[in-house]
Structure formats: structure tokens, C-alpha cells
Nucleic acid binder design. Structure first.
Length: 253
DNA sequence: AAGATCGACAACCGCAGGGAT
DNA sequence: TATCCCTGCGGTTGTCGATCT
């Protein structure tokens, strides 16, 4: 019998996602949600498998994602949680709002592991690494500043270095990106930034600042030319702007 | 300047869990 | 209970930019 493959692999695209694919996926999910990931690529007009779409969405396109390097407090929390939970990245990620398991896993493998080893701590066991010269001594090195996950959570929520307020919400005025009205009627084919997407200026209600994804789905926004645009279009622009700009990384540092 | 190497992160793969029938 | 299907998870690989030689 055997399992059915997650998708018909023939003719499906693999590798890095293009801006166009991102746009299609975001547009589809914002307008329809994702009833069933397997059906998403077909309905969204993507040559990807559902799994790939889900991963792209959850790890990169989701609106509630926090971007940039993990803060000191977040890193400490990850170490603490790892000591208690092991490689259960999704569980660890659930304690860090706006962070994905993949992101934490990558950060662990590339940064934290090295850091701990440098400190003489085994990243697997969180115990001091025994050296050949020095016979192992029961030195108590507490890699975790927290006594429990609850305590860590409490710290995280109270820490001035990190709070959920830092999660970059889709602020209305952030979605409104450079919109060159003068070029809207004239051709911009000679522009050095051919990928630049023109989105309409939108007036956002203050209460919308706290709207979730579900609230945005299917929402039509008025534009200056009277042509209603979906909120998803504005959202797509926001995401791509955010992704294309590296500056935010440095702002966080 | 060009090739080699390294590091960071995005994406893929295979498996397991759980709900539906 | 058995089977199917979908989703989530964790390990691994691939890609690309930065740095080194």
C-alpha cells in the first residue's frame, strides 16, 4: 500500500521562491485562507506542492512573524527551553512569539551551539565538556537563568529587551510604500527597480492595527483611482518590502 | 581578480501523529 | 480495527553571499 506522496512531483517547482510565487500564495491565503494545503497550490496557480506552500507561509510569509536576529533574552530562553525540552523546536518556538521552529533550529545550529561550546558547555547535554587535561569535576554551570519554563516565560514577558510589542505588526502606514504618483501614468520601464510594485495609498482605521489575518481576508480597500484593491495586495507589498530590505536587521541590533 | 572555503538561512524530505471514514 | 489523508515536526540538504587565500 504505502503512503501517497504529498504531491505529484512531476512538473513541480523546487528551490527558492520567487516574488511572483510569494505574491500568488499570499494573495490566495489572504483571500481564501488555507482550507487544505494540498489544494492550495492548485487553487493559487502555483507549481509547488502543498507542503512547500505551507512551509513558505509558516516560516516566511506569515504576518505575525518577527524578523531579525534573536535577542539576548530570546537566546537565553531558547537555551533554557532546550535544556528542558531537547530538540523539540516547535515546542520551543511556541514560547517565543513571532519565531518559527525552523528559525530557532537554524539559530541553534549556527550560533548557540558554537557559543555554548566556546563556553565549555556541551550543547547536547548542557553539561560542562570534560577535557583531557583536567579530570572532570562536578562543576555546576547553570546555562539556564530560569528554573522553569513558566519562569522563563514570565521573564520573557517582563523583559524590557524583549516583549511581544516588538513583534512588527503590519502597521497601516508601513504598508503604504513609496508610491510615485508622477510615474503612475508614465512608463517606468527604464526604472532601475523593475520589481517595484505600485500599491495604492490606503487610509487605515486605527482599529485595524489589531486586526488579524482573518479580518483581512477578502477585505477590499478603496484607492485613489476608485478601483478597489484587496488588502492582501497591500500586505504583499509590505511583506516584500520587508523582505527586500536588510536594514531592519541592523535596526534591531 | 578569481577561485576556494565558510557561514547563515531557506527549503526539502521522510516519518509520525491524529482525525475521518 | 484498519486504512487513508492531512498536517506538523525534526533532520538534512541546497543555495547564496561573505570572507579568505
Amino acid at each position: 500500500m504505502g503512503r501517497q506522496p504529498c504531491c505529484d512531483k512531476v512538473g513541480l517547482k523546487k528551490g527558492p521562491w520567487t516574488a511572483e510565487e510569494d505574491k500568488k500564495l499570499i494573495n490566495f491565503i489572504l483571500n481564501n485562507g488555507h482550507c487544505c494545503w494540498r489544494a492550495v497550490p492548485k487553487l493559487a496557480g502555483l507549481l509547488r506542492c502543498g507542503k512547500s506552500c505551507r512551509l513558505r507561509w509558516t516560516n516566511y510569509l506569515r504576518p505575525d512573524l518577527k524578523r531579525g536576529l534573536l535577542s539576548e533574552s530570546e537566546e537565553k530562553l531558547v537555551i533554557d527551553l532546550h535544556a528542558q525540552l531537547g530538540n523539540r523546536w516547535s515546542k520551543i518556538a511556541s514560547h517565543l512569539p513571532g519565531r518559527t521552529d525552523n528559525e530557532i533550529k537554524n539559530h541553534w545550529n549556527t550560533h548557540i551551539k558554537k557559543k555554548l561550546r566556546k563556553m565549555g558547555i556541551d550543547p547536547l547535554t548542557h553539561e560542562p565538556i570534560p577535557t583531557m587535561e583536567e579530570p572532570q569535576q562536578p562543576v555546576e554551570i547553570n546555562t539556564s537563568p530560569f528554573e522553569s519554563i513558566e519562569a522563563a516565560d514570565q521573564f520573557l514577558n517582563k523583559s524590557p529587551a524583549f516583549c511581544t510589542d516588538e513583534v512588527p505588526m503590519i502597521l497601516p502606514d508601513e504598508i503604504i510604500v513609496a508610491y510615485d504618483e508622477s510615474s503612475s501614468s508614465s512608463s517606468s520601464s527604464t526604472s532601475s527597480k523593475p520589481e517595484e510594485i505600485k500599491v495604492p495609498c490606503i487610509e487605515w482605521m486605527e482599529s485595524m492595527y489589531f486586526w488579524g489575518l482573518d479580518d483581512l481576508i477578502g477585505l477590499e480597500l478603496p484607492t485613489e483611482d476608485g478601483d478597489p484593491k484587496l488588502a492582501s495586495d497591500a500586505y504583499i507589498q509590505y511583506q516584500r518590502e520587508t523582505m527586500d530590505q536588510e536594514s531592519w536587521k541592523f535596526e534591531l541590533m
